[in-house]
């Protein structure tokens, strides 16, 4: 049975999990945005060269 009630420790446990989720979101979004941005630029340069 899932125990989602940490009682008096909720004030420590949920911020720890929340922070973990936030850091993962930042890592994923940052990595994907960076990859997307540079791929577009690299492709734009290669198209310019072909043209």
């Amino acid at each position: 049975m899932l125990d989602l009630d940490p009682g008096p420790y909720a004030v420590y446990i949920w911020p720890a999990y929340g922070l973990t989720v936030l850091v993962f979101i930042l890592m994923i979004a940052g990595s994907l945005n960076r990859a997307r941005r540079w791929r577009r630029k690299a492709e734009a340069f290669s198209k310019d060269r072909e043209a």
Partner: peptide, 23 residues
């Protein structure tokens, strides 16, 4: 998760270097 994000970031770095070399 690290494996996945590391690969994505290395790919970004390869594209960055290609774009900057082309520029």
């Amino acid at each position: 998760a690290f494996g996945s994000l590391w690969l994505v970031r290395i790919r970004a770095e390869v594209w960055r270097r290609r774009a900057e070399a082309a520029a």
